[in-house]
Each structure stands twice: as structure tokens, then as C-alpha cells.
């Protein structure tokens, strides 16, 4: 269980998170939604320890993560922008991450799934955005960990890969894992998310299941419900 208490984060004068409280139960797919700059990525990076909060506390399974790094062994992370060292080949990158994590992995299956075999010996700098994202996905699903964090996993993917990704996420969910993701594509969210967290101006505007959201706003699609929620008062 991830417990976030009174999280504050400022970048310069820009307050991104203002006293955010959030509990995420283990098991299931959670989608963090919100407009650009609402603090989705900051929240995720906070959980990963990449962003150091000004105030507040984050704990995973009852342990505060402040100045810790070992807990990341249990997290798979897919960053929003797939930036990789350009000098490395795909194969070398995968080997390197495996070397760093020292855990059993099943990258073979994923490589076949996304059709990456022809690119294994290419340097990352020469790959297209979509291919990089596929590599990104391989890296974040190849280890068997209880928490998977996906920041905009769909960006740059072709429809085929998108379907594969959804199947992959569902498969992991069935294993009882927790999946935390952000996305702009509401259709995607509607299809897979069990629960939605809506962030605005650094605070949580809504947290609940999709049916609850629809019911609250009286809309039939998630897209419309989300659009409507910003006009109705917060309901946490």
C-alpha cells in the first residue's frame, strides 16, 4: 500500500503539489489524470524518489522512502519521455539494466511480442520515437515486480502495439500487481482503469471507480465526465 501524506512540492515559485493526500491499495489499475502541469509526473517521480518533496511523507508498505533506494527494486517504471544513452545498442541497454537489477527477467518474450528483434543491434540514437517507446515498455515489464508505474505508456505507439500493451497490463493485473499509470487518452483509461485519481492544481479533485465518476457527473463517457468534473465542486 502506498500512503502519501500532505505532500508539498515547489519548483522555484511554481507550487505543483499543495498538500496532497493519497492512499493506493495494492492490486488493480490506477489511472492518475489531470491537465498538463497538474502534478501527475511530479507525483509519480515523488514515489520513485526522483523528486524530493519539500514537505510531507511518502511510504510504501509502511516504510518511508525518504533517502532510500532499495525499495525501487520492487518497482518497474516507464518514464514519460524515453531518453536513453544514444551510444548504447538496444541489446546492451537491456543487458545493462539486467546487470543493474540482478533479477530474473523475461525480455525474450516481450521482444518478440513487440517485434523488436531487428533493432537489437541498433544504437538507440538511431531509433524512431515509437520504437524507443517499445524498448521502454520492454524494460519496464521484463522484471516480475509488484508495483508498475507507467507514465504516458501509450505515446507514440501504433494500434497494434497499443493492443499488445493493453493485454500486457491486464495480464499483470491478473497476477495481482498494482499498476499506476497516467495517460491523456481517455478511451484507453476507460478500457483498463479500475480506479481514477483526478489531479488539479496540485490537489486531488476526485478519487474513485469509473462508474462512480460517471454517476457523480451524470455523464456517459469518461471524457465528458472528466470535462464536467472541473466545473463541479470537489468530491473526495
Amino acid at each position: 500500500m502506498i500512503v502519501i501524506q500532505k505532500l508539498h512540492k515547489k519548483f522555484g515559485k511554481n507550487e505543483v503539489l499543495t498538500g496532497l493526500d493519497l492512499n493506493i491499495e495494492m492490486g488493480g489499475i490506477f489511472a492518475v489524470l489531470g491537465p498538463n502541469g497538474s502534478g501527475k509526473t511530479t507525483l509519480i517521480k515523488g514515489i520513485l524518489g526522483m523528486v524530493v518533496p519539500n514537505k510531507g511523507n511518502i511510504s510504501i508498505d509502511g516504510h518511508s522512502i525518504k533517502n532510500k533506494w532499495k525499495y525501487r527494486e520492487g518497482i518497474n517504471y516507464l518514464p514519460q519521455i524515453a531518453n536513453f544513452p544514444g551510444n548504447l545498442k538496444v541489446k546492451e541497454l537491456i543487458r545493462m539494466i539486467k546487470d543493474l537489477r540482478q533479477k530474473p527477467s523475461d525480455e525474450e518474450e516481450l521482444i518478440t511480442l513487440f517485434g523488436l528483434e531487428p533493432f537489437l543491434n541498433k544504437k538507440l540514437a538511431t531509433l524512431s520515437g515509437g520504437t524507443k517507446q517499445k524498448v521502454n515498455i520492454v524494460l519496464s515489464f521484463m522484471f516480475d515486480n509488484p508495483l508498475i508505474i507507467l507514465d504516458e505508456p501509450t505515446s507514440g505507439l501504433d494500434p497494434m502495439a497499443m493492443i499488445r500493451l493493453k493485454e500486457l497490463i491486464q495480464k499483470e493485473k491478473k497476477k495481482g500487481k498494482t499498476i499506476l499509470l497516467t495517460s491523456h487518452i481517455m478511451q484507453f483509461v476507460e478500457e483498463i482503469a479500475d480506479e481514477i485519481v483526478y489531479l488539479l492544481e496540485g490537489r486531488i479533485y476526485f478519487k474513485g471507480t469509473i462508474p462512480a465518476l460517471k454517476k457523480l457527473t451524470g455523464q456517459t463517457t469518461v471524457e465528458r465526465a472528466i470535462a464536467a468534473i472541473t466545473t463541479t465542486p470537489a468530491n473526495v
Binding site: 520513485l48 526522483m50 525501487r72 527494486e73 518514464p79 531518453n83 544513452p85 539494466i97 537489477r101
Partner: peptide
């Protein structure tokens, strides 16, 4: 130039 490399590593279980 190694900003990407650094970011990749930061998400891994490695001490800063």
C-alpha cells in the same frame, strides 16, 4: 549529454 542515462539510472534501485 548523459542526462538520459542519469534519468534512466535514477529509476533503478541504485543509490543516488
Amino acid at each position: 549529454n548523459s542526462k538520459e542515462f542519469t534519468e534512466l539510472l535514477l529509476a533503478q534501485p541504485v543509490k543516488r
